[in-house]
Design a protein around this nucleic acid. Structure first.
Lengths: 209, 209
DNA sequence: TAATGTGAATTTCTTCACAGCT
DNA sequence: AGCTGTGAAGAAATTCACATTA
């Protein structure tokens, strides 16, 4: 039972989502085995068992995994058994779209603030979350208990926003800005790089043959 | 000179972006070596050289890489030396944000159509690209020469949209819907999974110590 | 001299095979 | 009998070390 590879976390999130969909729609059997699960996800059953084994024993030999129990356990592993407060920095097209995104609640994430410098946007409210001026990041992070942030500002200002968040104690960042950000080693940074994803497609399409 | 790992393509996209930024802002030296480049990206210089070596020899010993030349060569490797036509399926918050995103042009990607079923949205136009009804995917893909598609519809309808795109000859898909899609093996599918990314953060934050 | 390009070593991740439970 | 959990094998990716070339 060694340290899980980072990518196993991504797969656990996939397993959880599948189990939730599966439990919702089926004339639900209450258990599922790794082979079935693997077929639904188009991966290898050994991968699933190995991924789970990093965190303990969740199945029953001869039967498989009890769905409700497995969901619960994966949620706990992933830290989805409590609510997290989130802010979105940058209220451009993407930031605004995320601000209005209804899918956070299902993950127990609460968007509690947005930040921007545009006076037309400041003060606007959505679902109980307000947009504040960028200067107030530090005070609002503390006041609202913000633990995670999404960066949706232009590349040129992203690092300064991140620095402000770090100073305020935020330790987890999801970055959409097309730039390599620097964070201390005790902070988790994940990048979503739209242009890199699209480049995979152009690379594939232009490959010989 | 073996087959490059998939993730090397992501890194090539990073190298290219950095070189573009670097060339733009600097009192530009005309060459850069792998050590400098690596420092700017916070990675290992061997990684850069290895990634490039999958595609040929681009540097000069004793000097490093000529920036303009390297940019040009990476662009060609990645298929960014021609224009690609792109459509966006689903004009919700995210799809609309992408539809209005100005960053595509820098990558030689042209958003030439959007698709949605909402009568209020159909016919709207942005930067020369119109929104069409979902039913017309097949005809518009052919008419406009669409080669790549972004999926920004709800999970429940994503597969049927993908099926329509496949029938129309689209062979590259970037999927934002939180669902595992099935495509033929000659089609490239990349997934951007917002919830999986956020889960990495909650996992990290809730990890003991 | 300086920095690339690349086999080899190392590390990480995936897949396998089967012992061990239920 | 059936399926998990896991050590071991295998594959893949990263890092190293150095011969090589300008």
């Amino acid at each position: 039972m060694k340290r899980p590879p980072e990518i196993a976390i991504t797969r656990l999130a996939m397993y959880l989502r599948l189990l939730e969909d599966y439990a919702r729609e089926k004339d639900s059997k209450s258990a599922i085995n790794s082979t079935e699960l693997a077929q639904l996800l188009d991966i290898n059953p050994h991968q699933i068992r190995k991924d789970l084994s990093y965190f303990g024993k969740f199945g029953e030999r001869g039967l498989g995994y009890r769905i409700e129990e497995l969901k619960e356990k994966i949620r706990r592993i992933l830290g989805l058994d409590k609510q997290w407060n989130l802010c979105i920095c940058g209220m451009g097209n993407l930031g605004s779209a995320l601000f209005a995104y209804r899918g956070f609640k299902a993950m127990h994430l609460a968007v509690v603030a947005g930040f921007d410098n545009d006076p037309h946007k400041i003060g606007r409210e959505y679902n109980g979350a307000k947009i504040y001026r960028t200067k107030s990041i530090s005070s609002m992070v503390k006041k609202l208990g913000i633990e995670m942030a999404i960066i949706a500002v232009p590349a040129s200002t992203a690092q300064s926003i991140v620095d402000a968040l770090m100073k305020s104690g935020v330790r987890a960042i999801l970055n959409f800005a097309p730039v390599s950000l620097v964070v201390p080693s005790n902070v988790k940074l994940r990048n979503v790089d739209l242009s890199a994803e699209l480049v995979h497609l152009t690379y594939f399409l232009s490959a010989p043959k």
